[in-house]
């Protein structure tokens, strides 16, 4: 059994900004079309990064995860990020 940290979990979603070409998303959309799925508009692919935090205060945890996203997890020249907190269970 893995011991879980008692704090919160931050779920960071990183996506290419609108207007930044996402050839991977386009290729996925194309492949879905090949599988027979119809009516697919634009497809965009991103990353989800889950972080276990020792911090138990949601406001501070949110701020900490956002700083991590800004400084490393996302390259804000090309990517946007969103941070969501969840109970670490």
């Amino acid at each position: 059994m893995t011991l879980k940290a008692p704090g919160l979990k931050a779920i960071v979603t990183v996506m290419l900004k609108p207007g930044v070409l996402d050839p991977q998303g386009r290729a996925i959309g194309h492949a879905l079309g090949n599988l027979g799925f119809a009516g697919i508009g634009e497809v965009r692919a991103g990353k989800v990064i889950e972080l276990e935090l020792a911090e138990t205060d949601p406001v501070r945890a949110q701020a900490q995860a956002e700083e991590m996203a800004r400084r490393l997890l996302a390259n804000t020249v090309i990517e946007s990020y969103a941070v969501r907190l969840a109970e670490n269970i």
Binding site: V20, A27, N75, V77
Partner: peptide, 16 residues
């Protein structure tokens, strides 16, 4: 570019 010593970024090649 990642270290911000030069501006911009290098994306995946357009044709993948």
């Amino acid at each position: 570019t990642e270290a911000h010593l030069l501006p911009g970024a290098l994306l995946r090649n357009a044709a993948l």
